[in-house]
């Protein structure tokens, strides 16, 4: 029974997501769209953090790379959402290659500080290059034009149809990340987290594999950024701010570090709880921080950890 529980949960979750898309109201669809986008961001982040133990404060920059990559492409080159997403992901990955090349030279606190520095460089550029990025206003008026695929044209202007595009890309991401986790590459990443000295003595270049994980997680951050931009029809420079980098870690912490479902469960809890609490009080941050403190002090396995009976 226990073996099939994850498959059962996954099935129920997928059915619920499809059902929400089919019959959910406007608000529920918007909210769930955000949950899915945050899930992609957090799952991607977890490739780096959950598997190699590297804490990055620069991933907001890659999120913004995806957001601005898509935005600029759609506004100035071609209003094609799918190509825009591809361009956004490519921008984010490229940025991650450049930044990662420098950052993976360090680990622990020095890595965290380096990613912070590079991430804030990107933020300051977005903030100051008004002519290109719109400065503090961001890019606006990014419209979800129909996706042209040869003779086919798929409209995604309706939140409901865009919802299914996000769902499809979420499933693709889950599939890819699952495969990565269970690949030889994924085993090396797990090894790096466990004992990096030994990984080197297995004949593996630590830097290259750290960089690999860095770029992969940056690419998923870019995907989340591109999708978020299409959802809101605009970008915000604050999506590149370091404090935004903390979001995927914090939701993953709630869901469960080092678990596959943790980032997704955490994202759902984070966004839904926030909506609920904000109905009653303005003090969402207070409650959120108390939840974080409780989890850090006593339940480091997160929700998934508690449910599966593991307390790390």
């Amino acid at each position: 029974m226990k073996r099939y529980a994850p498959i059962l949960f996954a099935g129920i979750a997928l059915a619920a997501l499809v059902l929400i898309g089919l019959i959910g109201g406007r608000f529920l669809i918007y909210l769930t769209s955000r949950v899915m986008i945050l899930s992609i961001f957090a799952m991607g982040y977890n490739i780096l953090f959950g598997r190699t133990g590297l804490l990055s404060f620069g991933h907001a920059a890659f999120y913004a790379g995806g957001a601005y990559g898509l935005g600029l492409f759609m506004l100035h080159v071609l209003p094609h959402p799918l190509l825009g997403i591809v361009v956004g992901v490519a921008c984010a990955a490229l940025l991650a290659v450049v930044i990662g090349f420098f950052c993976v030279r360090h680990t622990e606190i020095y890595f965290a500080m380096l990613t912070l520095a590079f991430g804030m460089m990107v933020f300051s550029l977005i903030w100051n290059l008004r002519d290109i990025t719109g400065g503090d206003d961001g890019l606006v008026g990014i419209i979800r034009t129909p996706i042209a695929l040869g003779p086919l044209s798929i409209p995604i202007i309706k939140p409901q149809s865009y919802y299914f595009l996000i769902l499809a890309l979420l499933l693709l991401s889950v599939f890819l990340i699952y495969r990565i986790r269970h690949s030889p590459f994924g085993l090396v990443l797990a090894g790096i987290r466990e004992n990096e000295k030994r990984v080197a003595f297995a004949g593996v270049s630590l830097k290259n594999y750290r960089l690999g994980a860095f770029v992969l997680s940056g690419a998923f951050a870019g995907l989340a950024g591109a999708l978020g931009t299409l959802l809101e029809s605009s970008t915000s420079p604050f999506s590149a701010h370091w404090s935004h980098s903390a979001e995927p870690i914090l939701v993953t912490l709630i869901g469960g570090l080092q678990t596959f479902a943790g980032p997704m469960v955490g994202s759902a809890v984070f966004i839904v709880l926030r909506e609920v609490i904000e109905r009653f009080t303005h003090n969402w941050m207070l409650w959120f921080s108390i939840i974080l403190l409780v989890i850090i002090m006593g339940f480091r396995g997160g929700i998934v950890g508690i449910l599966s009976g593991r307390r790390k």
């Binding site: 890819l176 495969r179 990565i180 269970h182 690949s183 030889p184 090396v188 797990a190 593996v204």
Partner: peptide
């Protein structure tokens, strides 16, 4: 897995991102 990791590295197969380890 402890043995598999260096064995895969020796066989030059650790770069495979999407291939199932099985």
């Amino acid at each position: 897995e402890n043995i598999l990791l260096p064995a895969l590295a020796a066989a030059d197969r650790t770069r495979h991102l999407l291939r199932a380890i099985r």
